[in-house]
Design a protein around this nucleic acid. Structure first.
Lengths: 197, 197, 197, 197
DNA sequence: GATGAATGAGCGTTCATTCAT
DNA sequence: CATGAATGAACGCTCATTCAT
């Protein structure tokens, strides 16, 4: 309490730097995919390559940190969806978030999907937790009759990734505004997800 | 006719070389994505890198040629679909082919999607032709009441790309056999594509 | 036989290039130790870094090739020493060669000594062969009464390395001409190597 | 005397810091050679890299300080050897110390030998002093008939360096215990050092 | 026309040195 | 006076492209 703010400043700066690199890298990967060079990221973040190295010794470490960040945010999303009262709208909102997640952060998901981080224990634990929680959500929606019976949590994520991909395609072709392109095909998919018959 | 065989043979060889390179490159890109090196492709094709260069001065040229090849095959698919008698099954078969195309040749489509070939006149012409023909197919399906009214040809391609992406996700997670993974979510999407209510 | 020389030339050039790189690298390592950069070696050899890479994909590969070259030369030396008639002079000549070898190629021996190449089967086989042949030479010299009984082949090499090191020290201090500095302390060591008593 | 303790303490701390860095760096260089990073040394010493820099603005300065430390210790050794009564044992003990010095601190001697510190006046003065004192020792040993006539102080140091090198070679090959490997070839060298005839 | 060796810019990574706090 | 984050040049390595044969 009596500690002067000035004494903490360097650390605060450094922490801000780390955050800034993460933000910039996230954006860079989003725009240009994982092959964006670390030099480019350093340039955008306004730091030297050495600073980037200090914070993230390898490119994989940087990617890992971003993925972890997203994973944690995603766990929050699931938790909130589980806490919602009305099952139908909750599932639809959740699915929209899943699509949006895939739509926005496809660059990072490339890494996950490419198996780059498969041997990371923390991340795998996160993933398992996410899948388990999602399964509950799915089952509730199925019990409430708002979702086909023949799909599980993995399927839902795969379908969300697909809708995001469609959205990207639409943006590429100039069919949709990048800001809400993910909404373009949500209606089609949600119709497909409703129980058959 | 009076031309000596010896003089013609090199040309035939050269043509075969070009075809062989295209085939091999297509396969290589499918398996390893666009970052497969040209040296690797030359090796697989059994030619020197110089020969590859002679046929395709840059890697982009090679990719371009493969994309064009696929485009021409795709124009055939559309034409055949237009010639089919029953509109409903014809549309579903067409859509499945579209999904399969995206599913198998995503490596190549990466290039197209990445904007690598946007300023190519030939390709753009092909694309326009494909879209125009596809539009007819779509309109017929909508007139026959087997397809939602609020989607156009571009949308259908975007949705097909999405289903393919979902299929890839399923394969990654071990949910589906790579050989027919594209079928996994076709049912969901086709349900979503049917006219609403 | 009827094949024109011109058709083989590129390969000959390439082979010469490889040899040239080896020579230059050997010299560079001799002068500056193993930390000489590959770029420096490429510059000295008058080739691009890529050419160096084509011939020796990693720095270790380059070092390996040089060491192997020296090893083979050394095996020849041992063989010739074994073929000599008079045991005493043969041993002294052999020891001088061993000292000279260590004196000239210390840069390379650093690599061997540093354990950089310990897991190389070929090299280890060479080494074993050399030690076995040397052991014969040693035993003969001991039987002829020109060498102390309490030293084996490994000891002889260690002592030769020591004499070479002394020679380097003498050069550093300006006590000896670099061309024959290794001779400076040969007499002292040979006196020490004679049977005691 | 009237100076408050609080004001003096930082200086004492600073002095201790300097000593600690020297010790730690000495050990680090001994174990890992001169390529040990300054960051590693700072870490081991429990100080920031900035503190290290304040005491030793460049890595060379740090190495210099260690070498100087060793030099001073070595001057003590010589002095004590000169004070000994029996010439023969005194010389042998001195030579053993010289070998041990080279054996233990080869990392540092690398620097000296590499010419890294050649243009340093202090060090050169030390060296001259050491050589002059050593010369006296040598001359006495030669006068007493326990040392060959054809060697001077520089030669003795060169030979000691050689024995140390042999010892290292023996350790590398597993022929000797690192703790006393320097003794392994002392007998051979001492035999070689005795007057001929 | 075919070859494959040569090129050199660019990658991810490392670290001695500097400096704001 | 101590700190440790920031710097940027240099490393080993890779590969699309070029060109002598």
């Amino acid at each position: 309490m009596t500690e002067p703010a000035a004494a903490r400043r360097p650390r605060a700066d450094a922490a801000r730097n780390r955050e800034r690199i993460l933000e910039v890298a996230n954006e860079a990967f989003r725009e240009g995919g994982l092959e964006v060079s670390v030099a480019e990221i350093a340039r955008r973040a306004g730091v030297g390559s050495g600073t980037l190295f200090r914070n993230f010794p390898t490119k994989t470490d940087l990617i890992h940190a971003i993925v972890e960040m997203h994973m944690n945010q995603w766990l929050d999303v699931i938790e909130k969806s589980l806490a919602a009262e009305e099952v139908g709208p909750a599932f639809e909102a959740f699915f929209e978030r899943a699509v949006l997640f895939n739509y926005l952060d496809r660059g990072m998901l490339e890494a996950v999907k490419g198996g780059m981080l498969n041997d990371d224990a923390d991340l795998n634990a996160c993933k398992c937790e996410a899948l388990a929680s999602t399964a509950k959500l799915i089952e509730r929606a199925q019990a409430a009759g708002v979702l086909r019976q023949d799909l599980n949590a993995d399927d839902i994520y795969a379908l969300a990734a697909g809708v995001a991909e469609s959205a990207h395609a639409a943006v590429r072709e100039g069919l949709a505004d990048p800001k809400d392109a993910h909404m373009r095909y949500m209606g089609v998919m949600l119709a497909g997800l409703r129980p058959v018959g």
